[in-house]
Every structure is written in C-alpha cells, then in structure tokens.
Write a protein that binds this DNA or RNA. Structure first.
Length: 470
RNA sequence: CGGGGUGUAGCGCAGCUUGGUUAGCGCGCCUGCUUUGGGAGCAGGAGGCCGUGGGUUCGAAUCCCGCCACCCCGACCA
C-alpha cells in the first residue's frame, strides 16, 4: 500500500527535510529559550561517539583535558581588541546575581581564549613549561541572530583546544597537526565526509587570530558547512594576558598560542552530508548502533535465536542492538531503523531459520542478501567496512561532480547555485569577496594548487573555494 | 536586525473570506479483539484557555489593534 513519504523529500524542500529528520529520528527538540536545543538520547549518542573519536585523537596529539569556568569577567574579553569586537554582539551577559547588581558583569563564555590565557600566564614561567597543550569539553553561548538546530544554536557543546608554544613555528606546526591528524582524519575516516581543508581569508578569520584554518564539508544541497577550525593566535593573547616565559638564555619572551575546536554542529553536518529521503545514514565507524538484529515475528525460537545472534555479534566487537518488539509490525520497526540510519539490519524470521539463514540489509548501499547463520559475523563485519568506504566514495563523488573550476566571479556565483566553485584567488583580488557576498556566496578557504596550506594569502597561484554556506 | 510566512490536540493540517449550538480531520496515544516477511485492520476511548493582551459585538478561532514565538530568505556569525 502506498504511504505518504516518511520525510519531506530533499528535492521538495531541503530545510524542511532537515527539520523532519531531526524530529523523526528523535535527535533533538527545540528548547524553551530561543535558539536552544534539547539533544535527545539518540542524538546525544551520536555526539558521544564523535567525542570519543575526537578525544582519543586529541590525546594522541599530546593535549590534556582540563576544565575552566563558564563565567568570565567582562574585563577579560576587553583585553584583546579584535576578540572583543568580534564577540561583543553575541555575548550573553549576567548583570544580576544573588539578587544584587554585580560590580562587574560576567559573560557566559562564547569561547575560552581569555580565561585560559589568564591561567596559561600563571602556569608558564620557563621554556621548559612549553608547549602547554590543553583541551576542554564544554558548552558555550553565542547569541546568534538566526539559530538552526545543531548548525547554529545559542548554546552548543564543543571541544576547544588551547595551546602555548615557545616559537611561532611550533605553534603553527601544532595548529596544522590538529587540523590534519585530528580533524581531517576524523572527518574523512569516521564521518566519511571529504572535507576541503584550507586557509580562511582575512575577512573570514577568527576574531583575534593571525591565521584561521578550516575544514569545509559539502552538504546534500551543495552548500558548504564549516566543520571545524584551527587558529594561530600569534602573540595577540600572549601579550594581552602576559603569557611569558624565560628562554634558555634567560630572556623574557611572549609565547605563541593556538586554539581549535569542533562542535555539535558536526551532527548537523553528518545529517546533511549523508541523509536521504528515508532518513539518516550513519557511517559504520561512527554509528552508536552499527547493527540491529530484528526478530521478524515471535514464533518458535525466533526471539531466542535473535538474542543469541546479538550476543555473538557483540562478542565480535560490534555495537549491536536487538529489536524483539514483535508486538509491533515489522514494517514500522524497519522504517524506524532506516530513519535512524543504522548501517546494517539483520532480519531473522521462521523462514530464515528454517533455511539456516538471516537477511542482511545494508542501509547505505540499500541492498539485501541472505547469509548463512554460520557466516553472519564475518558478513556483518564486511558490510560495515564496505559501507564505510562506499559512503565516503559517494560523498566524494558528489563533491567532485558539484565542484566547478571557473575563472570569473560571474561563473563562480553561477556554480555556487548548486555546489562549490574553485577560482584563482587572483581573480577575486580587490573587491572580489564583496562582489560574491552580493550573492550570498563566500570564500570558504584558500589552498595551493597541490592542496597544501598557503603560508599567506599573498602567495601566487592560490585557489579559492567559494560557495553558499550554512 | 530587514523581507516573507505561520501560530487551532504530541505531530501535520482544515475551519477564518461571509462572527452564531457540544471546534473538526489525518497520524500518533489508550483499551479490546484480530494481526505481524516493508509505516496493520476493526471497534471503542482520552486528549483543546483556537500563541498572547486588549478592543468591537448580544455573541469572536473567525473582525480590528498591540505584543510574543516559530519557520524560510538575507544581514550577522570561530
């Protein structure tokens, strides 16, 4: 029987599709205060998987986790001129507490460069104290004018790394290490999103940074999403907060600092990069539930056998869940698991058991096959591995087919209607960014022809990737 | 913050133009029976300050004014 589509089709209304999927896959709800969100258990499980993978890589890069306060003295923000200018419009400020007007208002952190800078100054005396490599998992608040669930919420969860180094070179190398070894590897290998990695233009740079590097993903509608950033802060914060050290010759020097972060925005990126008209499609490496074993009906020893198969898969290291809700119809349950993007579904009913088989359904590739029960564990493992690869291949093919090489601003604007455009940076010089902005198109990042990071935007032969963005 | 749109049950909507008994429909929810291999069927039920404040009127979901919220397109935005 033909039913109404589960979700608004992407082609009909992409923003509506996005809202639908968030509601129907039970990822999040709007919070009571404008721009806030409630992350529901399934959405949070996805975030927790992101946290686990990113956290491990951050630790491998040598940084340690710490925690700094939510409240920051207003005066701290004012110590770095560009920083305060950039953030002032979006600060939430507490002026009354304990029933009294505060002597000095405190801001709810929009980011923690300032407090952390204050303490880095306290902890750094000698070149032997450097590098100081810190990270924190926290919530931050930015009163954005146009919130969108996961993509730009007033309060969001993130990881913010803050480091101090003895030299500019050390700082740059570390910021690039995080960009590549933590963020890019995670996004490509785990999220299966083929990000474009490059340098931000001065116009797009983080408030207070000397260089911002970014990872840009292409969403299903061809728009770009900034999935993460890594900044060189030069000596701006070191000078504002007095982060100094004595070098080997006993001379006082200012440190060089960096900061870098990824946030719950990645959940939105994941949805929009891979989702289809049936729901979410989660990369197996990330999925909180990689496999669901569905008992088709409660007959004979079906449920019992499903339980055993689930245990077997779990023992093989798979994140697996059993669906034995046989009082509900199969169609409903299958639709729900597809909405939630679980990569592999193993269906087991009396007919399968009689044949000594199970039906293995791949969510990413959309194929079904009967598999002998004895071969189930290896077949599941293969399905997970192969679908991880095919999801990345699919996303890469889309990005490439929707990226145009152009030479003029008009062509770039045209191409940005459906995807990315790559244009020589020299073709945009002197007012080009503003011209693009007239059409809601921005420069996402700058790369060298070989894809490496330009040391400055003045280098010759730089390529700009431009697009509409979230 | 500009432009546009929408606020009626958990969700999606109709009703409003032309004011008039108990405000409807689909999905979901509850109970029972029958079902269960791709969103089950039948029967019975629960659930509403019609966003909010004021005004007009014998009478307002419906007309008028204010406010608020949400959504979309922008501006803004690590």
């Amino acid at each position: 029987m033909a039913k109404a589509p589960v979700l608004t089709p992407q082609a009909d209304d992409f923003p509506r599709w996005y809202q639908d999927i968030i509601a129907k896959a039970e990822l999040a709800d709007n919070g009571p205060v404008r721009g806030t969100m409630v992350i529901r258990p399934y959405g949070f499980a996805i975030w927790e998987r992101m946290q686990a993978e990113v956290d491990r890589r951050i630790k491998e890069a040598g940084a340690q986790n710490a925690y700094f306060p939510l409240f920051i003295p207003e005066s701290y923000l004012k110590k770095e001129a560009q920083h305060v200018e950039g953030f002032s419009p979006e600060l939430a400020v507490v002026t009354v507490a304990g029933g009294k007007e505060l002597e000095e208002p405190v801001v709810v952190r929009p980011t923690s460069e300032t407090v952390i800078g204050e303490f880095m100054a306290k902890w750094t005396q000698s070149y032997r104290d450097l590098p100081l490599l810190l990270n924190q998992w926290a919530n931050v608040v930015r009163w954005e004018l146009r919130p969108r669930v996961f993509l730009r919420t007033s309060e969001f969860l993130w990881q913010e790394g803050h480091t101090a180094h003895a030299t500019e070179d050390d700082a740059r190398r570390y910021a690039e290490q995080i960009l590549h070894d933590v963020y890019r590897d995670f996004m490509v290998d785990v999220l299966a999103i083929p990000v474009v990695v490059g340098r931000k233009t001065a116009k797009e740079r983080f408030a207070g940074a000397t260089n911002t590097m970014t990872l840009e993903g292409m969403m299903g509608d061809g728009k770009a999403l900034q999935m993460g950033t890594s900044h060189e802060l030069g000596q701006n914060f070191a000078k504002a907060f007095g982060i100094t050290y004595l070098d080997a010759s006993g001379t006082e020097q200012h440190a060089w600092t960096t900061s870098w972060g990824v946030s719950t925005r990645m959940v939105g990126g994941l949805i929009m990069a891979h989702g289809d008209d049936r729901g979410l499609r989660l990369p197996p490496a990330l999925a909180p539930v990689q496999v669901v074993v569905v008992a088709v009906r409660d007959e004979g020893d079906v449920v019992e056998r499903c339980r055993a198969l689930t245990a077997e898969l779990r023992a093989a290291g798979v994140r697996v869940e059993l669906d034995a809700r046989t009082d509900g119809s199969l169609g409903r349950r299958v639709t729900d698991w597809e909405l939630k993007g679980v990569p592999v579904r193993v269906e087991v009913g009396p007919r399968d058991l009689a044949a000594g088989e199970a039906v293995l359904v791949r969510r990413i590739e959309g194929t079904k096959a009967s598999v002998p029960l004895a071969d189930l564990a290896p077949a599941v493992a293969a399905a997970l591995t192969e679908q991880q690869a095919s999801l990345l291949a699919e996303a890469t093919a889309r990005r490439d087919s929707r990226t145009a090489e152009v030479d003029t601003i008009d062509e770039a604007v045209e191409a940005a209607g459906s995807g990315f455009a790559r244009i020589p940076w020299s073709a945009l010089a002197a007012g080009g960014e503003e011209a693009l902005a007239q059409h809601a198109v921005t420069v996402r990042c700058l790369e060298r022809p070989d894809g490496s990071l330009p040391a400055s935007e003045d280098e010759a032969d730089i390529v700009a990737t431009v697009a509409r963005s979230y």
